[in-house]
Simulated scan of single mutants.
Amino acid sequence: MITGMGSFLLWSCGSPEVGPDGKPIVDEFSEMPVIQQYLLRTWKGMNDMNRMIQEPSRDKLLPDPVKPPYIQPPYTLVLELRDVLVHPEWTYETGWRFKKRPGVDFLLHHCGPPLFEVVIYTNEQGFTAFPIIDHLDPNGLIWYRLYKDTTRYVNGKHVKDLSCLNRDLEKVICIDWDADAVSSPRNHLKLKRWDGNMNDQSLVELGLMLRTIAESEVSDVREVIDYYRTFDDPLAAFRENQRLAQEQELAVKQRVEEEHQQKKFTSSIISSFFRRS
């Protein structure tokens, strides 16, 4: 059986390609002995298949940024699909289905164009992810979709190679729960993996955080991510920073109001003094 399978592999992979006229196409192996031809073509085919599995399907995963008068968002938001936006769940009644995470609509609405171009970059196969994304985004806020074939296979894992995005990495934020799933750690904002809890509000907080970064016109988002990567829960850290900022702003307003009232009181005393004089 092994001999038969090996012979079939050599015959199917080692045969020369045939042209429209039915004749074999001449290649770099055509002048070699027949057995050597078939062995080398088979070896080349196996290497090509291995490279196709391990490397992204193309060098530039996204088209070039558009030029004026068209609008190119200044930042790129890269989102994993599974356990970030949806969660697979199996029940006797429905079988396998994907639950939509609370806050997906909020995130896409507040972090879509013109602030971010939104890219789904997932380890899922295209035939699985495509209808899910269609259901999540009926308004077309997700501009690009990248599937498993565009990842790089490294040490048994499919890794998102952000250097192939054809974008300036100073403006790219990648959201994923897997610490090993992204090639550029400085662009990776790691969230906790969603387990299907429908009371979760992390995407709402994430939307507020990303919108704050974009509206602040940060020149290099990696510096912001470097700071938040030091926390186990970046969203909780952002929420605390926002609270402290609001308290500081309120304290400044109160101080200004007190100074205004003090000046008003002093002015009234001086005016009263001069009237008496």
Rank of each mutant, 00 (worst) to 15 (best):
Met1Ala: 06
Ile2Trp: 15
Thr3Leu: 13
Met5Ile: 15
Ser7Val: 13
Phe8Asp: 12
Ser12Thr: 13
Cys13Val: 09
Ser15Arg: 14
Glu17Gln: 10
Val18Glu: 03
Asp21Lys: 03
Gly22Gln: 01
Ile25Lys: 08
Val26Leu: 08
Asp27Phe: 06
Ile35Gly: 12
Gln37Trp: 04
Leu40Gln: 02
Leu40Arg: 09
Thr42Phe: 00
Gly45Lys: 10
Asn50Thr: 14
Arg51Pro: 02
Ile53Asn: 01
Ile53Cys: 10
Arg58Met: 13
Arg58Ala: 08
Lys60Thr: 07
Leu62Asp: 08
Leu62Trp: 00
Pro65His: 00
Pro69Val: 10
Pro69Asp: 03
Glu80Cys: 02
Arg82Asp: 14
Asp83Glu: 14
Leu85Cys: 01
Gly95Lys: 02
Phe98Met: 15
Lys99Trp: 02
Pro102Ala: 04
Pro114Cys: 02
Pro114Ser: 02
Glu117Gly: 04
Asn123Ser: 11
Glu124Leu: 10
Phe130Cys: 09
Ile133Ala: 01
Asp134Met: 12
His135Lys: 15
Asp137Trp: 05
Gly140Phe: 07
Trp143Cys: 13
Tyr144Lys: 10
Lys148Asn: 05
Lys148Trp: 09
Asp149Lys: 07
Asp149Phe: 11
Val154Gln: 03
Asn155Ala: 08
His158Ser: 15
Val159Asp: 03
Lys160Gly: 06
Lys160Met: 02
Asp161Thr: 10
Cys164Phe: 03
Leu165Arg: 05
Val172Asp: 03
Val172Ala: 07
Val172Ser: 03
Ile173Asp: 05
Ile175Gly: 02
Ile175Pro: 00
Ala181Thr: 05
Ala181Gln: 03
Arg193Ile: 06
Trp194Asp: 03
Asn199Ala: 11
Asp200Ser: 04
Ser202Asn: 08
Gly207Glu: 11
Arg211Thr: 05
Thr212Cys: 12
Val218Ser: 01
Ser219Asn: 06
Asp220Val: 01
Val221Ala: 06
Arg222Asn: 02
Arg229Lys: 13
Leu235Val: 07
Glu240Asp: 10
Glu240Ala: 09
Gln246Ile: 09
Gln248Lys: 14
Glu249Arg: 15
Leu250Thr: 13
Val252Gly: 06
Arg255Gly: 07
Ser267Thr: 10
Ser268Gln: 10
Ile269Gln: 09
Ser271Asp: 14
Ser272Val: 15
Arg276Tyr: 09
